[in-house]
Design a protein around this nucleic acid. Structure first.
Length: 540
RNA sequence: AGCGAAGUAGGGUAGCCUGGAGUGCCCGCCGGGCUCAUAACCCGGAGAUCGGUGGUUCAAAUCCACCCUUCGCUACCA
């Protein structure tokens, strides 16, 4: 890759509940792995931006249920998530939040620019209003008879019987699902929208110009397909309480909708981090903006977001890469709060340390298709791969050195190691994370095989043994560096043992090392029964 | 319903764009080896009508059509 600046982002987790490991593997973890690679292994000028998405209806409702202010809930959740991500060893340059003053100013500036440039239009939606509760109802709080199949308890967004999508006003005899009365009136509400129709050609040009930068196939196909159908104005305001008030006369009672201020949050959070120097990244044309997100977020990042940036004409860079990931499912279904299935990141850390989870999740990362997590798959990843393959390889080599008290070595990076480093870089540059990890596992396999072939435990000639250990330690060094983005704690432990504190790939070369023989320990362990039981409880 | 993505040995994946013997990898299983290592590691083997049907072609996992199944989006659920 060329020398240039990078902004790596992960979709902002919503501050309603603790994210589950599916959320983590879908954007934050791959972003972290890629960021660690370009920042620490390649030494590029890169920042990793993420934060809590704090506004919107669900938080408002959740807070209302708990009897607290939305703001209070949003901030306590933010603090909780921030702490958990730290424990997960996520190397954010800054983990901010969308309710900040910095973000508010940015939202207003960008909105003003869009308005001034003529890209804001008014839309009208029809909202169900319950006269008894004196409340605007969200679509699914209205129930009634389905106009298609006659099912009596169809919800306002979808009929559970025939599966058709509905709008509340289509329901026959609509009633409120809170008070169960049929005292519903449909009122009209005007909102503001970004006129994506007017920006469509420019958005298309943007996609065509960037789609070859390792975009996920789904991201390209889906966004081009939307454009082919024709983009419609996208609402950015709503009739809710919790959020930034709209700064336009006549609309002060409205709030900016989450998909406006959360996207702009990438910029707002960078301002929290770098203050006015945020322009060094966001307005420097050489910066590559690499964005990670779940597949459900593609249209917002590939269409609305560039539309906002282009329409504001403020000189912000556009996304360089849109890397969407598929979903991680539990065997037999989705992560489900209602069924109480799934593992949130707090529960996950209660069972295993972050390196284990990071490894498992990278090993099954749903990059090209949905993937499945189960106790069996976790056992495979931890026991057979991480422990037996990687952990054992490191330990068996170091044990030989310890047995013969061989401390000082002049390690050699052999052709095999060089070949794998090169292939690893090619994959990581293309952001093929899971394949890169599997490639490193392959080098571990080859190295295990090499040890058996050479029967290093039988070698009595010390010079001969040292010669081979030089090569093997070279392999381990290369493997440890390549694993750093995935399992940073382990890498740092091993580099500490050989007294090297340089993570750069270009530094992987022949050099003298000194092994701290006393620090040698078994790096990983298999799952114990207690851990398996806990996993079963969450996943089966 | 429309639009995207996916369906390859018991499980998981790669290959598909740019057709050329089911070619590969990981786990599991079976047999053997080794004993440095955490019952670990190494070698060998069995196991697949490549979701289905039809078509194009000398040749289809790969291209085309239709169908089945799963997931996501379709604008207040982020």
């Amino acid at each position: 890759m060329d020398k240039s600046k990078y902004i790596v982002t992960s979709a902002l987790p919503y501050a309603e509940a603790i994210p589950h490991i599916g959320n983590l593997v879908g954007s934050i973890l791959p972003a972290d792995i890629f960021y660690r690679y370009i920042r620490f292994l390649k030494g590029e000028d890169a920042i990793f931006i993420c934060g809590s998405d704090q506004h919107g209806t669900p938080i408002e409702i959740q807070a209302y249920k708990k009897g607290v202010e939305p703001k209070e809930l949003a901030y306590s959740m933010h603090n909780k998530m921030k702490e958990l991500f730290e424990r997960f060893n996520i190397a954010f340059s800054y983990y901010g939040y969308t309710d900040s003053e910095e973000n508010k100013r940015t939202v207003y500036e960008i909105f003003d620019s869009l308005y001034k440039n003529g890209y804001i239009v008014e839309t009208e939606i029809i909202l169900p209003f319950c006269k008894y509760d004196n409340k605007v109802l969200s679509d699914r709080f209205v129930i009634g008879k389905c106009p298609y199949c006659g099912f009596d308890d169809a919800r306002g967004d979808q009929c559970d019987n025939c599966g058709r999508l509905l709008t509340p006003d289509q329901l026959i005899d609509p009633r409120c699902n809170i008070c169960k009365r049929n005292d519903i009136e449909f009122i009209k509400s005007k909102n503001l929208a970004v006129n994506l129709t007017a920006l469509q050609d420019q958005i298309k040009d943007f996609i065509e110009a960037n789609k070859d930068h390792n975009w996920s196939k789904a991201a390209v196909n889906k966004s081009l397909s939307y454009i082919k159908e024709g983009l419609k104005p996208r609402d950015i305001t709503r009739d809710i309480e919790w959020g930034f008030p709209v700064n336009l006369k006549g609309y002060e009672s409205k709030r900016f909708y989450v998909w406006f201020d959360a996207l702009i949050g990438y910029i707002g959070i960078t301002k929290q981090y770098l203050k006015e120097r945020y322009v060094d990244y966001w307005k420097d044309r050489s910066t590559k903006l690499i964005q990670f997100m779940g597949k459900d977020n593609i249209e917002f990042h590939a269409l609305l977001w560039p539309g906002i940036l282009i329409g504001s004409k403020s000189g912000f860079i556009l996304p360089y890469t849109i890397k969407s990931l598929e979903y991680l499912n539990i065997k037999g279904g989705k992560f489900s709060k209602s069924r109480g299935k799934g593992i949130n990141i707090e529960q996950a850390l209660d069972i295993m340390d972050s390196d284990y989870w990071r490894f498992i999740l990278a090993y099954i990362m749903p990059e090209t298709a949905d993937s499945e997590i189960s106790v069996e798959i976790i056992e495979e990843a931890v026991n057979s791969i991480l422990n037996n393959k990687i952990g054992n390889l490191f330990y068996r080599v170091l044990s030989i050195a310890k047995r013969d008290s061989i401390k000082n070595l002049n390690i050699v990076i052999d052709d095999k190691a060089k070949e794998y480093i090169k292939r690893y870089e090619e994959l990581m540059d293309k952001i093929e994370i899971r394949e890169a990890l599997r490639l490193v596992m392959e080098l571990a396999d080859i190295t295990n095989s090499y040890i058996n072939d050479k029967r290093i435990w039988d070698i009595r000639d010390k010079d001969k043994l040292i010669e081979i250990l030089n090569e093997l330690l070279g392999r381990l060094y290369a493997i440890a560096v390549m694993l750093y983005p995935f399992i940073p704690s382990f890498s740092q432990y091993f580099l500490g043992v050989i007294g090297v504190d340089d993570l750069k790939i270009e530094s992987i070369a022949n050099r003298a090392i000194s092994i701290k023989l006393d620090s040698i320990k078994i790096p990983f362990s298999k799952l114990n029964q207690e851990q398996i039981d806990k996993l079963k409880e969450r996943l089966e």
